[in-house]
Amino acid sequence: MQEVVLDLEFIIGHYNYWLFVILMMTGLYITVSRGNLIKKVVGLNLFQTSVFMLYISMGKIEGGTAPILTGDPNTVYSNPLPHVLILTAIVVGIATTALALALVVRIGEEFGSIEEDELIEIEHELDFAEESAEASPVPGQGDANKGEPGGK
């Protein structure tokens, strides 16, 4: 029975996957752990980029050239399909980032902060304000405080 403890060749041979895993974990970790909304978006970008790398490296064939027909039957081509797919994914990624940043801007305008813990605090206060408004008999018209009796 053969027991392989550490197959160095295997590890090194798959270096692109290791890079991909490291990058992906970094991205995911940043997305989850950072409180700053912008940094979260950066993490998300890293995460997505790692996937692009995965696809691109999987299409690469050792010794392969760009998939342009050369007429020589012995030419080895790289697989173009993953590369093309990733073009689409990059577009999606950019759109996501743009939308996320736009949202962050709006959040900054409305709440005056883009730090997650501060936002949570503000939202808790909002909740609390709503609950205490509930106790008073005035039927709240949402944010539009029209016709509020002047007792306050």
Partner: peptide, 20 residues
């Protein structure tokens, strides 16, 4: 967000989780 600004943070969180 026009009705309640918390829609923004809701959308942001949705975006992050949805993209992941």
């Amino acid at each position: 967000a026009e009705r309640n600004r918390r829609a923004l943070t809701a959308a942001y969180n949705y975006l992050i989780m949805g993209t992941v």
